[in-house]
Write a protein that binds this DNA or RNA. Structure first.
Lengths: 139, 139
DNA sequence: TTCTTGACTTGGAATTGTTCTAATATTAGA
DNA sequence: TCTAATATTAGAACAATTCCAAGTCAAGAA
């Protein structure tokens, strides 16, 4: 889903499209690197020096609740965010703390609505390890 | 793996078996409810009134590094721990914040060592939703 | 056993990440 | 343009975790 579609959806659903909200969504659209809240905040500060951390948190929460972005809890103690909401695996390198997308086919949970009597609402398939770049450094 | 085997493994590897470390491992062995650090700390306080939070954190980190327990980052902002280290899915209910084990067969990552050039060291397959108990409450 | 050294634990301070709050600013509709 | 509702701001408050210095304990040497 491109950014115009997401903005249109927000608009349709009656969400006020402030410049800050636009900026946060735009930032995630331009940076598919799974940034942390801190990274988003400091990057936006460069353009909108008055933007507040609370606004960044509120906006991320709002976009998440509209189903337009994805929250990632792969790294302990801090949140990452992803523009892409289609279910896909995330890989965290415990050396450089970079989060990568990885493609895994054949997940048995795909499309499932219930498991053990619990209602499935979101999949968060995470993998921890050492990324290709850090493997090379090792030598 | 039962607790005696884990204690033996610690001993073999030259890890000092203090009463605090024993207590933390014992607590996880007796409570397969995926407790948070806070829950572990306050439960142990009842028996060992002098135990410090730092020791609980240090011990959990140590046991994790020995591969004897598992850290769970399913809930934002806080850690849960699991005595069981065999890969299995965890389900977080976003209403009651309870973490459940769920059984999912046929994970395509099982046994895999590499993905996209990254070295896989740990799988963290998480699912978010509403648990069976909370689904009943809803009505 | 006593001594010594290194490892472990403690309590509290410091740090980090997130949420809350009250005041101000902006928006959309009348 | 006015009004009421909503959004943003700055900083305080809060929660989870890590750090630190001091004291304690454990294992091996004498």
């Amino acid at each position: 889903m491109n950014i115009k579609e997401k903005l249109a959806e927000l608009n349709e659903k009656g969400c006020t499209l402030t410049i800050q909200r636009h900026a946060v969504l735009e930032y995630l659209y331009a940076n598919h690197t799974h940034p942390t809240v801190e990274e988003i905040y400091y990057s936006l500060k460069k353009k909108f020096s008055a933007i507040s951390k609370a606004t960044v948190y509120n906006t991320l929460e709002l976009l998440k609740n509209y189903g337009l972005i994805q929250e990632i809890t792969i790294e302990k103690g801090k949140l990452h965010f992803d523009y892409e909401v289609k279910p896909h695996h995330h890989f965290l390198c415990h050396r450089c703390n970079q989060v990568y997308d990885v493609d895994v086919e054949g997940c048995p949970l795909a499309g499932k609505e219930m498991i053990d009597g619990h209602k499935i609402e979101e999949l968060r398939p995470y993998i921890i390890g050492t990324c290709s770049k850090c493997l090379k450094k090792k030598g």
